[in-house]
């Protein structure tokens, strides 16, 4: 929670990546007042204030593993940024959330993985549509970025490669 220094940003079209400063603050709970700029709100709270927040491109959402992309639905296309929390990297629900947001609900903004994120899951995350990675503070972010290059190809279709290998080989 809070502001985190290390973000790897991936340009999905070119594959170019860079390490950038983070401008977003993820909060567990919003107060009753106006939401400050560059805030990531829990899905539930954003939904409660949807009408007020839908036009604001400086407010984003974060998903917990048991949050449902269906609850956001078509509003996903209006958002600039969505974060998905991986409280433990072994909880794979966020992979499904990422794919659903991208493939079913047409989300094109920044999809950020937060929480227990380090080198060894970046390849899967990228394939599920993530293009920003908040690397755990105790990990070397430069080293972690190399995880994006662990594999050049894969068998299945995915967000970054809509055609499965059997349609290309």
């Amino acid at each position: 929670m809070g502001k985190h220094p290390h973000i790897i940003r991936l340009d999905r079209a070119s594959g170019h990546r860079e390490i950038v400063a983070n401008h977003w603050i993820r909060v567990a709970e919003a107060g009753d007042d106006a939401v400050p700029g560059h805030t990531l709100l829990p899905l539930k709270q954003w939904l409660e204030r949807r009408d007020e927040l839908l036009e604001r491109d400086d407010v984003g959402i974060w998903f917990a593993p048991d949050d449902e992309p269906e609850a956001l639905g078509a509003d996903a296309v209006r958002l600039a940024i969505i974060a998905v929390d991986f409280p433990a990297f072994t909880d794979g629900r966020g992979f499904s959330i990422g794919r659903l947001l991208r493939e079913r609900y047409g989300f094109t903004g920044e999809l950020r993985a937060v929480g227990d994120v380090f080198k060894d899951t970046l390849n899967y995350l990228r394939r599920c549509g993530f293009d920003a990675f908040e690397i755990r503070a105790d990990k070397d972010v430069e080293e972690a970025a190399k995880g994006l290059d662990d594999f050049d190809d894969a068998y299945q279709n995915s967000v970054d490669q809509p055609a499965p290998l059997f349609r290309r080989r």
């Binding site: 072994t90 068998y155 299945q156």
Partner: peptide, 13 residues
Amino acid sequence: RQWSTFHPEFAHL
């Protein structure tokens, strides 16, 4: 086998 090998979504069931 090929479908299940490094499936991006189902690595941490």
